[in-house]
Design a protein around this nucleic acid. Structure first.
Lengths: 82, 82
DNA sequence: CGTGTAAGGAATTCTGACACG
DNA sequence: CGTGTAAGGAATTCTGACACG
């Protein structure tokens, strides 16, 4: 499920995060949505899962900087789950 | 892939159909998108595949009425492919 | 640092209708 | 019948900024 076709509002519903959080995680390079012509972010189901993991880590006290450094393992952890 | 999360503009890109065609096929009960709060249609990847099949059939001379009658087999054909 | 919010604009989607054939 | 299009409105998303801590 790598197709980036889900808009931010739907990702919000799917993850429970706010749009602000989602955009911030992108700004910190933890997630890389596709951009449609009009500039709208488009996410994949994999991105959705990844966002959930990111938020869990954040609640555990990790900072975006830490997560960026371990981005690879984050991805691994992600696909290793669901 | 049954989650209805793709908006019509993306479905347009994925299928090559126009929004008018997609809405018409819904009107004719060939496809059943979910509706978001604001009223926007949301489709699944399965719907996308189904729309492709529908359009192929239409080009082969079938009418929406015929396709509605064989909706079950249409779905079967659909999942039987990709 | 991570997130909330109000601000203004641009892009998206919706419906009902008229058109053609 | 199936599809194009212009029309007006409503919902969605975007960016940059100010706020708090």
């Amino acid at each position: 499920m790598n197709e980036k076709v889900i808009s931010i509002g739907t990702v919000r519903e799917l993850t429970g995060l706010t749009e602000r959080q989602i955009r911030y995680y992108e700004e910190k390079q933890l997630i890389f949505p596709y951009r449609s012509r009009g500039g709208a972010r488009k996410f994949s189901f994999e991105d959705v899962e990844r966002l959930k993991v990111i938020h869990t880590k954040m609640k555990d006290g990790f900072r975006t900087y830490d997560l960026r450094r371990s981005a690879a393992s984050l991805l691994k952890f992600d696909s290793g789950r669901s």
